[in-house]
Simulated assay, not measured.
Amino acid sequence: MSLTGLLVFLAIGATAGWLGGLIMKGSGFGLLGNIIVGIVGAVLGGFLFAALGISTSGLLGSIVTATAGAVVLLFIASLVRRA
């Protein structure tokens, strides 16, 4: 992976984690937390979108997929915290 590709990957993760945090709890998790939530969310979102037959492309599609996964991840985490 090139340096540019890595920076884009981290930027998408940070953006998706920040958006997921805004949607689920009203704020982000700091830069590192947003990146981690966004990257895990991207994997989860990619799996869920593939299972549902939804395909996305491009930068905006990647952000939407990662954000959707981050929201699901944070929702599951909130359920686990309550139990």
Rank of each mutant, 00 (worst) to 15 (best):
I76A: 11
L3I: 13
I23D: 11
I36W: 09
M1Q: 12
L44R: 08
G13Y: 04
G45A: 01
G41W: 10
L74K: 04
V43N: 05
A16P: 04
W18S: 12
S57G: 12
G30L: 11
L79H: 05
A68C: 02
G69P: 10
F75H: 13
V40L: 15
R82I: 00
T67R: 04
V37T: 12
S27C: 00
I63D: 01
F49E: 04
A70W: 11
A68F: 10
L31Q: 02
T4N: 15
L10V: 12
L74G: 03
I35L: 06
L60Q: 13
K25Q: 15
A42Q: 07
G13E: 10
L73R: 02
G38M: 08
A51F: 02
S2L: 14
I63V: 15
L10T: 01
A11I: 01
A50W: 02
G33M: 07
G5K: 15
L32N: 13
V8C: 11
G17H: 03
F9R: 14
S62V: 02
V37I: 14
F49W: 01
V72N: 02
A83F: 12
L10C: 12
G38Q: 13
S27Y: 00
L31P: 08
I35T: 09
L60V: 15
S55M: 05
I76P: 00
G21L: 01
I63Y: 02
I54P: 00
S55K: 09
F49N: 09
I76S: 06
I54W: 04
M1T: 05
G17Q: 04
G58Q: 08
S57D: 07
G5P: 00
